[in-house]
Simulated assay, not measured.
Amino acid sequence: MTHPTQSADIRLIASDMDGTLLDADGQVPERFWPLLENILAAGILFSPASGRQYQTLEAVFGDRDGLVYIAENGTNIVQDGVSIAMEPVVGSIIAPVVDWVRSSIAAGADLGIVVCGAGSAYIERADEEFVAQVRPYYAALTVVDDVTVAAAGDDVLKLAIFDRGRAETRTGPAVIALGLPADVVISGDNWVDIMRPGVNKGKALLHLQRHLGISREQTMAFGDYLNDAEMLDAAGHSYAVANAHPSIRERARHLAPSNLDEGVITSILAALPALAPAAA
């Protein structure tokens, strides 16, 4: 583990969720909750920064003052229950992506698409195997006959394609080859996100810094996968957990223990020991 050698003036901590803060069961470690209370009591803002939708993140963290959510990989920033910045996809990309997924499924590919609206996520594939993959990320989830029709009245923040184990090698390159006005981001072993060009967690973090009057050097960020790259660039104190994608470990300024070893907690306490909860 590495961390700042001198006490840093940290005003904002942003952390990815899956593979970074969350444990092997996809849960926030119990040891994090008293630390979070100390973080907020010290006047430091905490931002869960995730590909998950806002409704899912809010269900985990609840209504706490001092939380600012970076949801849907940076396409939706929510503070005090209000979106302070929203970046929907270019509408013309929705039908071509959905058509490509449908054609691929018809040809035998094990894929599924989630059209991620601000109000709900929409899926057509309703088998329990797929729904079980989607449900942890989307608390507001609607099964529909046609995702393009169902999402027409919503702000579509991103499209997410599930491809078991081959997101980086198969689906990502195939969607890029469609040549659409969108950024294609590999957000996990099984997930590809399609978003508005130039939108990412890093842009969202920069927006937050400007909005809150917080500098890059007053910001700490943690990540593990390719969709965290720009967020780490935007933080003066950037951490890759030990289980991170190799390119993310190279990109970060510091290395933290893995998510299985509570690397976010350990690194925050190492850099900011005054935040340590009192012994029971």
Rank of each mutant, 00 (worst) to 15 (best):
V144Q: 00
G119M: 12
A140K: 14
K203I: 02
V149I: 12
H211A: 12
E168G: 08
G198K: 06
V149T: 06
P197W: 00
A182P: 01
A182F: 07
L141I: 00
Y137A: 15
P136A: 02
Q209F: 06
R210A: 15
A118I: 08
A204G: 05
V184A: 00
D145H: 01
I186E: 08
V175I: 10
G153W: 08
D145E: 08
V185M: 13
T148I: 11
H211V: 04
L206K: 15
I123Q: 08
V147E: 04
V143I: 11
G202S: 04
V144W: 08
P173W: 03
V184C: 05
A140E: 05
D145G: 07
T171H: 03
Y137R: 15
G172E: 13
G153H: 12
G117T: 09
D189M: 13
E168W: 11
V147Q: 06
P197D: 07
G172H: 09
V143K: 13
D146R: 01
Q133A: 12
S120A: 15
L206T: 14
N190Y: 03
A174T: 09
A118V: 15
E124P: 04
A132Y: 08
L141N: 02
A151W: 06
S120P: 01
P173R: 07
V199Y: 14
V134R: 12
D155F: 14
V144G: 03
V131Y: 06
A140D: 12
T169I: 12
V131W: 13
L205N: 01
Q133T: 03
T169V: 12
Q133R: 07
D145Y: 14
F162E: 07
V143Q: 11
P173L: 10
H207E: 15
I186N: 11
R170T: 14
G188S: 00
Y137P: 14
L141P: 01
V175G: 04
I161Q: 08
G119S: 13
K203W: 08
T148N: 13
A182Y: 05
A140L: 10
S187C: 07
T142H: 11
E128L: 11
F130N: 02
G153D: 04
A204S: 08
T171G: 01
G112F: 09
T171V: 04
H211P: 15
L159V: 08
G188Y: 10
A177W: 05
A132L: 06
K158E: 05
P197N: 03
Y137S: 12
A126H: 11
G117Q: 06
R170N: 15
E124D: 02
I113T: 07
L178R: 06
A174H: 02
V199E: 01
Y122W: 04
A139D: 12
A204K: 11
A182C: 05
I176P: 04
V175H: 04
A150Q: 10
I176Y: 09
A151C: 03
A140C: 09
S187K: 06
I123D: 07
D189P: 13
A132G: 06
V175Q: 06
S187M: 02
G112P: 01
R135K: 10
A139R: 09
V192T: 13
G165K: 04
E128S: 12
F162A: 10
G117V: 10
V144N: 07
Y122H: 01
H207C: 14
L178K: 09
S120H: 14
L141Y: 01
G198S: 07
D163K: 09
R166S: 15
A204R: 07
P181C: 03
Q209P: 02
I186M: 13
T142Y: 03
R125T: 01
W191P: 06
L205P: 04
T171P: 03
